[in-house]
Design a protein around this nucleic acid. Structure first.
Length: 510
RNA sequence: GCGGGAGUAGCUCAGUGGUAGAGCAUCAGCUUCCCAAGCUGAGGGUCGUGGGUUCGAGCCCCAUUUUCCGCUCCA
């Protein structure tokens, strides 16, 4: 385990040192759990996204793409139940580590005062016997009046504060009332926080008439709200899918493990709309298909596993994860969920629009069921990076660090290297570079010894190095070096483009 | 969120109160016809940030921030 932690640290260092991932706003001390992709990171990320997209959209006639906006009507999140699920103001007692809802604490406190009033009434009833006038007593007894006034004051102060989301005032009320934790008995409270994972912002530039909207916490809802549009304009017939990639935002309470859990992250999702009753068939289908996609990247199957959910979310009737063995253990990479008709039904209710499919065979309309595949792009990036990072001891005793990224998704495809920086080799190399660069992301490098340049390319995972030497000038051939084996072969320059194309464009699913 | 550790060059780190360093990396040359650590030279740091103690702080104290580990939470 210590070795694995060590390895993970090395991967993080490597990712920074070679321009894959930087911490956000680093020169300002960074921003917690937010990361930027550097010059090679963005290439790898784009390539993974494109590889997913082609396999989902281009290779499946009944799946189409979508790019819904991050901003959506606030009611979308009411319908999806994201707003209400977890949005109470909460605070923790630092000593007992118990978490309470602020309104519950205050209401309990008010209940205690009411209790005291009742006790006074009971005492008085015993004392005055038959002649006791409860109504009169409640209005005139100084102690009772004091209690009642206090309750009124608390209510007048606390509930408006709750309504206008003034969390500082909410906390101040609790402090002023000297409310203690029932468990620890102390008044050592954290600040009151709104425990909602959604990032809120406002639309409209003047704050007075701006309305609160959210940055989407998942991309799926953008698909559901466009279900009707896509189905009608695309003449889609069930079963069909809508795929989308894009950013999503969650206020994670604990965000850790590098880019594994970030506050801003990217999802690649596909919602597959099906006839009710067929959900298990399609659930199994996508469960299998998605695993095939992962394995096509060439990472050993032993590093993946399914994890079936026992406890299901409110919207699902079957769910599993595809987990990957990261250096910090098996963790979720992708989720496959049978979401029933929960989302479309909810949107149908809230919007008042009929979100149904007319089946011409049965002459009936129904709300389709949905099977979702939802994969984290950043997590896939991390999975590939942690698989690819390799430290090797070579036969001559030296060491090298190489990223064994599948050529199809490697950031730089080809490095073009003149063996030495003279004798016309740089000029020749430039010619070859120009031939390749229109179709492949290439690098030209003439600095330092050839071996050092190979190692530099190994470190960023470039699968092929083309080297120009004296023989090139004579017979128009170059050597091409393969990253993992370090083997070289001599090929005609004329054949180079075709050769590279075969190697880096190969569809891995075949 | 709680507790503990850490933050010095792009990376890994040394520096126990008295003039900020090393290796690797980077850049400019030289050398080199195939796998880094040959040669010469150069650039790069308000020591995470802000306060304090002191004649003097990278070092001591406080706060803050980032990060790591453990616990907790995760609709």
């Amino acid at each position: 385990m210590a070795n694995q932690e060590e390895l993970f640290r090395k991967i993080i260092s490597h990712a920074k040192e070679y321009g894959f991932i930087f911490q956000s706003s680093e020169i300002y001390d960074g921003l917690s759990a937010v990361y930027d992709y550097g010059q090679y990171g963005v290439e790898l990320k784009n390539n993974i996204r494109e590889y997913w997209w082609k396999n989902m959209v281009q290779f499946n006639e009944n799946i189409v793409g979508l790019d819904a906006a991050i901003f959506m009507h606030p009611t979308v999140w009411k319908a999806s139940s994201h707003v209400d699920a977890f949005s109470d103001p909460m605070l923790d007692n630092k000593d007992s580590r118990k978490r309470y809802r602020a309104d519950v604490l205050v209401e309990d406190y008010i209940a205690k005062i009411e209790d005291k009033i009742n006790k006074e009434v009971e005492k008085a009833r015993k004392r005055f016997g038959e002649t006791f006038d409860e109504k009169m007593y409640l209005e005139t007894n100084p102690r009772v009046v004091e209690y009642k006034t206090k309750i009124t004051e608390i209510k007048a102060r606390f509930f408006p504060a709750l309504d206008r989301n003034d969390l500082a005032e909410v906390k101040k009320v609790i402090e002023d009332l000297e409310i203690a934790c029932p468990v620890s008995g102390t008044r050592n409270w954290t600040d009151v926080r709104q425990f909602n994972l959604m990032f809120a912002t406002q639309m409209g530039s003047l704050s007075e008439d701006a309305s609160q909207i959210y940055l989407r916490p998942e991309t799926a809802q953008g698909i559901f709200v466009n279900f009707l549009n896509v189905m009608k304009t695309g003449r889609m017939k069930v079963p069909f899918g809508i795929a989308q990639t894009g950013k999503a935002f969650r206020n994670e309470i604990v965000a850790r493990q590098f880019i594994f859990r970030m506050r801003e992250f990217e999802q690649m999702e596909m919602q597959f709309f099906i006839k009710p009753g067929e959900e298990m068939k399609w659930y199994e289908h996508w469960k299998e298909k998605r695993m095939e996609w992962h394995l096509s990247l060439g990472i050993p199957a032993s590093r993946y596993r399914y994890h079936d959910h026992d406890k299901l979310a409110h919207y699902a009737n079957a769910a599993c994860d595809i987990e990957f063995e990261f250096p910090f253990g098996f963790k979720e990479l992708e989720g496959i969920h049978s979401r029933t008709d929960f989302d479309l039904n909810a949107h149908q209710q809230y919007s008042g629009k009929k979100l149904q499919y007319f089946d011409p065979e049965t002459n009936e309309s129904y709300v389709p069921y949905v099977v979702e595949t939802s994969i984290g792009l950043d997590r896939t990036f991390l999975a590939i990076l942690s698989f690819a990072y390799t430290e090797e001891k070579l036969d001559d005793g030296s060491e090298r660090v190489v990223l064994k990224i599948p050529p199809r998704i490697a950031p730089v495809k080809v490095a073009v290297l003149p063996l030495v920086k003279k004798d016309g080799l740089p000029e020749k190399a430039r010619e070859i570079f120009d031939i390749l660069k229109t179709d492949f992301y290439c690098q030209y490098d003439e600095k330092d010894a050839i071996g050092r340049r190979y190692r530099r390319q190994d470190a960023i995972g470039t699968p092929y190095c083309v080297t120009i030497d004296n023989i090139t000038l004579e017979d128009y051939t170059v050597t091409i070096r393969e990253r993992d084996s370090m083997k070289q072969e001599r090929v005609d320059i004329d054949a180079l483009h075709q050769l590279v194309s075969e190697k880096v464009r190969k569809n891995l699913m075949e």
